[in-house]
Design a protein around this nucleic acid. Sequence first.
DNA 1: ACCTGAACACCGTTCAAGT
DNA 2: ACCTGAACACCGTTCAAGT
Lengths: 211, 211
Amino acid sequence: MPRRSQPLNRARIVQAAVELADAEGIESLSMRTLAKHFRTGAMSLYNHVDNKDDLIDHMVEHVAGNIELPATTIPWRPAVRSLATSTRDTLLRHPWAPDAWSARLPGPQRWRLMEAMLAPLATAGLTDHDADLGFHALINHVFGWTRQHLAFTTADATTTPHDVAANLDADEFPNVIAHLEYHEANHHTDDAFDFVLDLLLDAIDHMARAT
Amino acid sequence: MPRRSQPLNRARIVQAAVELADAEGIESLSMRTLAKHFRTGAMSLYNHVDNKDDLIDHMVEHVAGNIELPATTIPWRPAVRSLATSTRDTLLRHPWAPDAWSARLPGPQRWRLMEAMLAPLATAGLTDHDADLGFHALINHVFGWTRQHLAFTTADATTTPHDVAANLDADEFPNVIAHLEYHEANHHTDDAFDFVLDLLLDAIDHMARAT
DNA sequence: ACCTGAACACCGTTCAAGT
DNA sequence: ACCTGAACACCGTTCAAGT
């Protein structure tokens, strides 16, 4: 809760909004509570942002801008792999980001990321069709895995998978119960992200060699 | 806008809420506007639903209940394939559903779906580890593809990919522009869903044979 | 048991008035 | 140019009072 020494500007507002959404959840981010961080009223924010929707657009762009790009000199496979991983890492720091991201049109920072993923794919020697398939499969994996991971680590920290399993009918849902118990026992083995990522990279490599 | 001949009950409320969210978007679904559908005040809904969050839980369960399950007699691969496809088909009819689904804990109908996906996978002869990888990769693909498709078909119907491409710097984003133009030219070739689905099923089959 | 009006504590946003 | 108070049109939800 900083005093208001410096004048308001959009960068500071967006930065504070991201921090607030990270800490308290985006559902409790309101123009009024955000303005309180600057010891002013909600109306003052409208000098720097069109409206709340515009603010969230800028928040998503801010997050997108934090994603580290791979060097343009490395081969396509490590480049794509590195970008997928750093995208996941950044998204995990902003639990509200995946939903906001998917629901909005891209801005400059997101175009920059798309370019950084498409450019190495374009050097792999794929047909347009295969490049398109590969690109979307990779994006879907990164966001799908991240969302799944966030749902597990964020939702009701009080309710463990084991508790949930105990309330399910063992005759009706035997495989669900086994699945939940597997997760209970394997909390810290997070190789699923890399495994499926490599599966997709293998498939892309295979398509490239067949072209 | 039905007259209120029958008494209110939760099933009718949830049904109306789903229809309203499908037609107008979930952001314009309020307890007050929903109540107006039954020519009553918002407060009357609270006799059948704990609160708005509970209502949305029931809406997601309603959608999950509409997903057709494969026969339990068929082999694992067509069973999984069919469930993935019918899940996608149902989700596409309810654009608000994927976000609401991912953000909430499962209820009975979603357990039923998980069981219907895990049960055939369990007969494929995978290790627990591989079954887990396969399950999550399949779910991520279904939801990721569906979200992507919804974003493309719902967002600003006025702005075509081609319009967007025209506003991008051709030197900075050459691959993004090529990608958008590819989508412009290939509106109706939707084989990406099946292609990646088969890729994942092949990988699962391969893991099963190697066990 | 089910219903419902009034009221409370919030929202986002507009507008007119200030410096 | 930037700021801001009051006001408007909404929210979800509680509570007390009705049948």
